[in-house]
Write a protein that binds this DNA or RNA. Structure first.
Lengths: 210, 210
DNA sequence: GTCTATATGTGGATAGAC
DNA sequence: GTCTATCCACATATAGAC
């Protein structure tokens, strides 16, 4: 019932599969990716994959949760830094999010795919699994909504609905995983793009000084 | 070779299929949608569908191009209105784009899917078809880049790379097709959300008055 | 034009050798 | 733990009746 055999104690064999699966799912999407594709990417055959995972959906979920946890682990601490202003905190959260979209492109692209799927037809077993993904995403969005709310109280941000305002911000950010080509970007590019996104989003919320 | 039987002279029978396909593809995504799903949505069987289209990929492409042409038809004239400022033009372009994402959710969601696919593995026949989609998308992005460039020349916008600046803007907009639920939104909601997006994006580019 | 078969290929998952 | 061989379900597309 649980699907994957273990997520906490993942040995090296399992981690290799996870990496290969992230690449494969990024390349072709969940449905179009076959277990053979993942095995090919791994330089092995199906047998190896099925030794570690019982089903394709379980591999996918493992990639997705790995990506989401990595994102939360980086952004959560910034959101909690109450010593800096809401606007500055938001800038750093956006910058970090944008950076991960590029440096960890495959895992983050797959996580985005999972969020897109939640409105999709019941994938039988996956329906329950995707529910966990949506819960995580909602909590993540709330981190941004809270910081936006604080920016409003500080008088720095316009009078927006914080929850609605997270939509264009996170939409812009998540879209990076779609257009960004990890083969073309070096470190300087990543920094430049991340800064541009942070400026854009914080600026978009800032109250214009009349 | 051409695939679809006709796109210009689409009779009522063909248009019904297109609508049903848009809904079905929106619900489950391209790969997970079966021809039977489309036929069900239509209240018919496969036979009807295959009478008008030779292949699933052709139906998809027809939905996608319909959505993209509809978007371009609305935004292009605004982009060409040289009588109003670059900033105002951009505001209206964004407002219109956001509105269509909600009022024509299924067609636009499917068009976004196609754009997401272009990085995906060669879908054999589709590769060539998707190339046309990417060309259209590039031309569409250029409309925004040009207006942003004009806003810069007017001294209203910050010194951004216009082409890069279209990415967060269009990413935010396209993401609407993913989170917006057409069953929940009335006319007032659509107007409010579209205005918020337009404010957000134009504000994001605006030079802050120091 | 629309339906009901059906041919055909492919992919997820399992069994069992090594 | 990793492989090969195979089962089986399902989806695209076609053939042909009505």
């Amino acid at each position: 019932m649980s699907g994957r055999l273990s997520r906490s104690g993942s040995g090296p064999g399992q981690r290799d599969i996870l990496e290969a699966a992230a690449v494969a799912f990024t390349r072709a999407g969940y449905e179009a990716t076959t277990i053979d594709d993942i095995a090919d990417e791994l330089g092995a055959t199906k047998g190896r994959v099925y030794h570690y995972y019982r089903a394709k959906a379980d591999i996918f979920l493992d990639v997705v949760l790995t990506g989401m946890e990595e994102m939360i682990a980086g952004v959560q601490p910034i959101a909690s830094s109450t010593d800096i202003s809401g606007a500055d905190r938001l800038w750093r959260m956006v910058h970090h999010h944008a950076g991960l979209m590029m440096t960890r492109n495959s895992f983050q692209r797959v996580a985005v795919q999972a969020v897109e799927m939640h409105r999709l037809r019941e994938h039988s077993t996956q329906k329950a699994a995707l529910q966990k993904v949506i819960t995580l995403r909602d909590e993540y969005e709330q981190l941004f909504a809270d910081v936006i709310d604080e920016g409003k109280r500080e008088g720095l941000f316009r009078d927006v609905d914080p929850r609605l305002a997270t939509k264009p911000a996170l939409g812009a950010l998540n879209w990076i995983s779609i257009w960004y080509d990890p083969d073309r970007g070096d470190y300087a590019t990543v920094q430049r793009v991340a800064a541009e996104y942070a400026d854009f989003i914080v600026n978009g919320l800032r109250r214009s000084r009349t």
